[in-house]
Amino acid sequence: MERNTPLVSVCMPAYNAGEYIADTVKSIIDQSYTNWELIMVNDGSTDDTAAILNQLTDTRIKVFHQENKGPSAASNQAFKLSKGKLIKFMDADDLLSPNYIQNQVSVINDDEDAIAFAAWGRFYNNSLKTFRLDDNFLTKSMKPAEWLIASMTDKQVMLQNAMFLIPRRILEVSGLWNETLSLINDFEFFIRVLLCAHELRFTNDAILYYRSGLAGSVSTTTSAKGAESAYHSVNLGTQYLLQQETSTRVNRIAADCFQRLVYTFYPQHKAVVQKAVLKVKELGGSSIAFPAGGYTKILASVLGWKATQYLKFIFKNRG
């Protein structure tokens, strides 16, 4: 294959994704770039995911079945089975615009120290009619540390799997997914990986359609294990950034990340909340507001955020 058309490996873990996975695979098959392989790891699904994958006939698609080990382990298995010079990790329920891979390959332009990224937006209820592009996303090519700092200042950074195209060489330096993490494992992983590149390059005419609002998805997990994973992922990811720059602005960013954990896990996971509160204090404090809208915002203004979260927790469990 010619130098400007390297093999791209799309590494896709799948767990109980039967309702959406066919559309996701189609968005890969419909890519204008044709030199790709799709490595799909069925991570012990209990729905019809396995049956759907076994019916795929495109020779560029490889399917591997394993017992349930979690998304990080499944992603690592997909990578181990891959052969591409460029790697894209991708969730089994998201979609890519038709020129996505082609334009990311072009922007990397055979530079093994550059990572491509692209625009994204959310859609709901299995309908692209609900899609809205995130217009607050930083669409500028930059040094990784500066991009991360800018993307994390006064807001949550988006580090979604399929957004990035990564040279294999960078992953060999950074290491793969941390298999002890489940909830927000992408936070730790992508900060670590991005900081091993010399440049992040924005890709024009490339959109990630991020499926949101799925009941029971990993991102909605609120188990004790999930809360601990979120804490450790934030702790590791912010440490990587602090190692790049010791400054007031990075301390503030890190403190804000831990404060979001406080808001998210109060009052259900007290141990994680207590650890996060200590981190906020150690880092100099956070001033980010409690995220609320509508009736929740009104209630929080009267009762305070803790009482509001407690009431939401009580009603959720009773419901």
Rank of each mutant, 00 (worst) to 15 (best):
S32H: 15
C11W: 01
T34N: 09
S27A: 07
I29Y: 05
L38P: 00
S9L: 06
I21C: 10
Y33F: 13
I28Q: 07
M40D: 07
I28G: 03
I21W: 12
T24K: 06
N35Q: 07
L7V: 11
E37I: 03
T24E: 15
T34Y: 03
V25F: 09
E19I: 00
Q31I: 03
V8C: 11
S9T: 08
T34R: 15
M12W: 04
I21G: 11
L38S: 05
I39P: 14
E37C: 01
N35M: 05
W36M: 03
G18C: 08
I28N: 10
N16D: 12
M12N: 08
A22C: 06
P13R: 14
W36E: 01
I39L: 13
I21P: 05
L38G: 04
T24Q: 15
I28R: 08
I28H: 09
M12F: 03
L38K: 01
D23T: 02
I39M: 08
P13T: 06
K26I: 10
N42T: 06
M40W: 03
E19V: 00
V25A: 11
N42W: 04
N42Y: 05
V8P: 10
I21E: 14
A17Y: 02
I39Y: 09
L38M: 04
I39N: 09
D30G: 12
N16I: 00
L38N: 05
C11V: 04
G18K: 13
N35V: 00
G18R: 12
K26C: 11
N16Y: 07
Y15S: 10
E37L: 05
I21M: 13
W36A: 01
